[in-house]
Amino acid sequence: MLDRIKASLSSLAPAEQRVGKLVLADPRAFANLPVTELADRSHVSKPTVVRFCRSMGYDGLSDFKLKLAGSVSEGVPFIHRSVDADDKTSDIAVKVIDNTVAAFLKYRNDASSFALEHAAQALAATQKTNRRIEFYGVGNSGIVAQDAQHKFFRLGVNAIAYSDGHMQVMSASMLRPGDCAVIISNSGRTRDLMDACDIAKKQGATTIVITASGSPLASAGHIHLTADHPEGYDKYSPMVSRLLHLLIIDILATTVALRIGEELQPTLRDMKNNLRSKRYT
């Protein structure tokens, strides 16, 4: 979170830069001080403090301070440890688990609740009007797209997943306003996914991209759900990224399910009852 603020300082307005410098100078104090004190110390107005938080992708000062407090708390292992060829199996297990836990905790503190809320609203609106939600991904991200289809299909959503570039382009060409396209990519640089996103956007569909910050895909969609992690997409087997993407899908599916409400319960009960014959007693 602090690295993101540092990298974004030069692009902010001068007044917001002063707020950002105050955060970097003493993040713990910033997380605990009232807005009046923060404004006085930054020599800005109280609305400017809130505006800075929103410029950084957070839903106001309270959301920003909550995530800031978590990111600077002690004992959170935000360190990615690469596996080595001479590692023992026990060492590999510890590193893989630690990397996953660290990525999840980091996402918990860094995630933009504003972007998640915006995405959930778009998906819930699509479900309510019985429009289409399509999930696009290739390779490893194609598996995540299929999992997303399964999650939303159970909610009674008209959902489908495509991992073939030609099918993505053809299907995106048939999207219309009110539909949603969710594009999932670790690198954010896959040409087929960029093409599908651009086409879906031109057709009037709402495009939600789940990918790394600073990638071409990150700025191509209407809503960007950041999935940053230290795992190199060109060097490592994408383990952490896959789990992080699945986590984001789970958050969205759970939020949409709660928005659908009680009307979903009879369908889920019927589904569970009908599946009983598929299992051994």
Score class of each variant (00 low, 15 high):
residue 49 V to T: 01
residue 27 P to D: 11
residue 51 R to G: 01
residue 25 A to V: 02
residue 37 E to L: 13
residue 48 T to G: 01
residue 10 S to R: 15
residue 47 P to F: 00
residue 2 L to D: 09
residue 6 K to V: 00
residue 27 P to V: 12
residue 19 V to S: 09
residue 10 S to G: 07
residue 14 P to V: 02
residue 26 D to E: 10
residue 40 D to T: 14
residue 22 L to T: 12
residue 14 P to L: 06
residue 13 A to E: 12
residue 46 K to F: 04
residue 35 V to P: 03
residue 23 V to T: 05
residue 25 A to N: 03
residue 39 A to P: 04
residue 25 A to K: 13
residue 22 L to Q: 14
residue 19 V to C: 09
residue 24 L to N: 06
residue 37 E to Y: 05
residue 29 A to D: 10
residue 34 P to F: 10
residue 12 L to G: 06
residue 42 S to E: 03
residue 30 F to D: 09
residue 36 T to W: 08
residue 31 A to G: 07
residue 25 A to Y: 01
residue 26 D to V: 06
residue 36 T to R: 15
residue 27 P to K: 06
residue 14 P to N: 10
residue 5 I to V: 15
residue 28 R to L: 11
residue 36 T to D: 15
residue 1 M to P: 04
residue 16 E to C: 09
residue 15 A to R: 08
residue 17 Q to L: 04
residue 19 V to Y: 08
residue 28 R to S: 13
residue 18 R to I: 02
residue 30 F to V: 12
residue 47 P to A: 04
residue 51 R to F: 01
residue 11 S to N: 08
residue 21 K to F: 03
residue 15 A to L: 09
residue 35 V to N: 11
residue 20 G to P: 07
residue 39 A to M: 05
residue 47 P to R: 01
residue 39 A to W: 07
residue 22 L to G: 12
residue 19 V to G: 09
residue 11 S to R: 11
residue 2 L to H: 11
residue 46 K to W: 06
residue 6 K to M: 00
residue 20 G to V: 05
residue 9 L to K: 11
residue 9 L to A: 06
residue 26 D to Q: 06
residue 11 S to K: 12
residue 16 E to A: 12
residue 2 L to R: 10
residue 7 A to L: 12
residue 14 P to M: 05
residue 17 Q to V: 00
residue 45 S to N: 14
residue 43 H to S: 15
residue 19 V to L: 03
residue 12 L to Q: 11
residue 29 A to Q: 13
residue 31 A to R: 13
residue 3 D to Q: 11
residue 14 P to A: 10
residue 23 V to A: 08
residue 39 A to N: 06
residue 1 M to C: 02
residue 44 V to N: 01
residue 46 K to M: 15
residue 19 V to E: 10
residue 2 L to C: 09
residue 25 A to P: 01
residue 18 R to G: 01
residue 43 H to K: 15
residue 32 N to E: 14
residue 12 L to H: 05
residue 51 R to E: 05
residue 37 E to G: 03
residue 3 D to G: 11
residue 24 L to F: 08
residue 21 K to Q: 13
residue 25 A to C: 03
residue 33 L to K: 15
residue 16 E to D: 07
residue 46 K to R: 15
residue 3 D to F: 08
residue 17 Q to N: 04
residue 50 V to L: 03
residue 50 V to F: 02
residue 18 R to H: 05
residue 4 R to L: 10
residue 26 D to N: 14
residue 16 E to H: 11
residue 26 D to Y: 03
residue 33 L to H: 14
residue 16 E to T: 00
residue 41 R to C: 07
residue 20 G to A: 09
residue 17 Q to H: 04
residue 23 V to F: 06
residue 5 I to Y: 11
residue 37 E to W: 02
residue 41 R to T: 02
residue 38 L to Y: 09
residue 34 P to G: 12
residue 29 A to M: 11
residue 50 V to Q: 03
residue 41 R to I: 02
residue 32 N to M: 08
residue 5 I to E: 04
residue 10 S to A: 14
residue 22 L to R: 13
residue 28 R to C: 06
residue 13 A to R: 10
residue 22 L to W: 05
residue 24 L to K: 07
residue 36 T to M: 05
residue 27 P to Y: 09
residue 49 V to W: 00
residue 18 R to C: 10
residue 7 A to V: 02
residue 15 A to D: 14
residue 9 L to H: 10
residue 21 K to A: 10
residue 21 K to V: 08
residue 47 P to M: 04
residue 11 S to P: 00
residue 19 V to H: 08
